[in-house]
Write a protein that binds this DNA or RNA. Structure first.
Lengths: 241, 241
DNA sequence: CGCGAGATTGATGGTAATCAACGAACGTGG
DNA sequence: CCACGTTCGTTGATTACCATCAATCTCGCG
């Protein structure tokens, strides 16, 4: 599927995008020479909504960077599906699989119209083996990712649905500037998946949070009493970062 | 607590242990010079059973390697505790925290009498910044760890207690050489924790697995019908590795 | 205006945690 | 070697949490 898009939609990367990629922690410290090698091999791709980009169990041919839109990492097993992460610009994905040169452990699909930059895995591994700064940046990035996954694991194992939701609301509010109004960037269906619950349960959990000053106003979530919500949520830097 | 042991129990590392460490993927490719620097700063420590080695939320001063015994990584939050991983020789731990130079996300305690080698975090980061091969080895190790954590997350979110147990039995049997008899290396209490369930539930889950040819014989778990067990467990290389 | 996807609400069942009690195994000291 | 006590494991009863199924509701869009 990817190769189709490579030939039909793959285009040269815009300079503005390239600058943004260059500024990422993963790429900012490597030599200009080595970055140029990656850049010339990179392609910009645009995907429609709800398109599967990669499939778990297959081998990685590219390192991807989300430039625009959003990408959902998910896994399926025995008739069940679960969301691992939702990625927004500017983040890389499948770096671990590229470095290990081993199969993907999760699939990826677009949630919206999405643009990515894809760098051939061979080029990435080549740079990894020849650019000291890049190797260090990759290690640092993977350490961050590892921490993030451990946090997710703790979030799953130590909190109930309602608490995960409460903490997600607090975190989303902080990211959006403590306006006490959260505007959803995607549907509640997707939010439910990313919080590890069913849409039905998200509805019920939101209803339960009204006891702690959470009101739903159309597409918005309003925090009326952040102290009450925090007392219930019990946010922790050791889980929420 | 650690510093007490450093002064009272910390001793020079034996050459045989050092050779074993040198042979690990993480250390085998670095220069002899840089390895020697780490080795001279390293200390061998012995800890009694059930001793907390590190506490979540504190900063890492050492990279640790389990030489003998076993170490449980666990997390606590809001009155609950969960086990993240159980480490046996020869594995390193808290590498991500050392590289990030940020707080531990989980605590560690010994399950048995345990020996570790501890390398000062400063020395590790120094080598990370000066030894290209070591930087690459760290990236590779972190990629492995990342994958392991994603697998754990999938195991938690996509399987019930009984299925996790069934797959654990199959995996443990494979590790011990397909004898169809698993001898527990630790108590069922700890096994329950590492499978993310209560001891009560482990008992009940084991009982339920008798339908699939799993028998308990004293301290051993016997697989009488591995086909039936596999049909129930549905093992997957995308989760179990 | 009416359709259809997404969201909510209700009813029900399954899974696992919790609480409580009992039984088995082990180590210790007599 | 036995008696005892402590810990660990099992079993039972109950409750909390969440998934599932089904029905209704809402809203955007043709």
């Amino acid at each position: 599927m990817l190769s189709v898009f490579l030939t039909t939609r793959g285009i040269l990367v815009r300079h503005s995008d390239l600058d943004a990629v260059r500024a990422l922690p993963l790429f900012c410290s490597m030599s200009q020479d080595n970055f140029n090698k990656l850049a010339t091999a990179a392609v910009l791709q645009e995907f429609p909504q709800h398109m599967e980009l990669i499939t778990e169990g297959t081998l990685p041919h590219f390192l991807h960077i989300v430039i625009q839109g959003s990408v959902e990492m998910f896994c399926t097993h025995d008739g069940h599906e679960t969301t691992i992460d939702i990625l927004r610009p500017m983040t890389t994905f499948v770096l671990a699989a590229v470095i290990r040169d081993d199969i993907y452990l999760s699939s990826a699909r677009t949630l919206t119209l999405t643009q990515t930059i894809s760098i051939p895995a061979l080029s990435v591994r080549d740079a990894f083996n020849n650019d000291f700064s890049f190797a260090r940046a990759i290690a640092t990035e993977l350490a961050e990712r590892y921490s993030g996954t451990v946090r997710s694991l703790k979030n799953e194992k130590l909190r109930t649905c309602a608490k995960r939701l409460a903490n997600w609301i607090l975190h989303a509010d902080a990211v959006q500037g403590n306006q006490r109004v959260i505007v959803l960037a995607f549907g509640k269906r997707t939010l439910a998946a990313s919080l590890g619950m069913t849409p039905e349960n998200l509805s019920r959990s939101l209803a339960r949070l009204s006891k702690y000053g959470v009101r739903i106003s159309g597409r918005d979530i309003v925090i009326e009493d952040s102290f009450a919500l925090e007392r219930f949520a019990k946010p922790s830097t050791l889980i929420d970062g």
